[in-house]
Design a protein around this nucleic acid. Structure first.
Lengths: 124, 124
DNA sequence: CCGTATCCGATGAGATACTG
DNA sequence: CAGTATCTCATCGGATACGG
């Protein structure tokens, strides 16, 4: 009855898929920012900082598609669009925050490993 | 004394960096597979399945560089190279596994959100 | 204000062939 | 067996310009 470690290549693929989903350049930054509450497009753009309009749109669309955010349009002039995390989006933030905490706690270890590796490689 | 949710744009970048690091196509699959114990190059190649020799080499090098795996060469003929998780690598597996569990638990919700979004968009 | 369309360079990743 | 070297193609992501 060994649990077969991880159910090889069955679930690992799904895991990898989620990590790639969440590991793209802007997704986590946007979701984390929306964790502070609903925001308008340009508000979000400014809060995230450094993201292009194109990428913000793309990121938000795919977050909406996957059910992580809702998009609400107010047909005023000028138009106004609010984005807000869904329950699913807020739940996603939990394990992502855990990974974030790990990252913050271990950045030093990673950087020193890198420095050592790179200096060893520099012997060539 | 609000914790300011996440310390905007200071740490978020580091978080995003780790997620991209871990979110590439093969890293997690390789690390998870190595979670079962030390493995030789081709053993790993077979266990992961579908990875090219080039990408396995690339992935392992960068994991080694960041201190997640060790590489041990036995200068025999034919040569033998073992890869093994470091403590850091095993610790990384903890939050990654948490995210994995979340992913497995919520794939259904994501997929149905997608289906609904896509069918709505198909009205065009 | 919000979003789309287009162009373009940088990176990602597979296939293949070759070396110690 | 383990790894490197190319070549090639797809995708990512930024800049810019335009539309409702």
């Amino acid at each position: 009855m060994k649990p077969r470690h991880l159910h090889h290549t069955e679930d690992c693929r799904a895991i990898s898929a989620i990590l790639q989903r969440v590991g793209d350049k802007w997704t986590v930054l946007v979701v984390a920012t929306l964790g502070n509450g609903p925001m308008r497009f340009n508000e979000l753009r400014h809060a995230v900082g450094g993201i292009s309009q194109k990428m913000l749109t793309t990121t938000l669309r795919s977050l909406e598609r996957d059910g992580f955010v809702t998009r609400t349009v107010f047909p005023t002039i000028p138009p106004r669009v609010d984005y807000e995390l869904t329950d699913l989006g807020r739940e996603l933030l939990v394990p992502v925050t855990a990974l974030s905490d790990w990252a913050r706690a271990n950045t030093g270890r990673i950087n020193s490993a890198r420095a050592q590796f790179d200096s060893s490689a520099a012997i060539s």
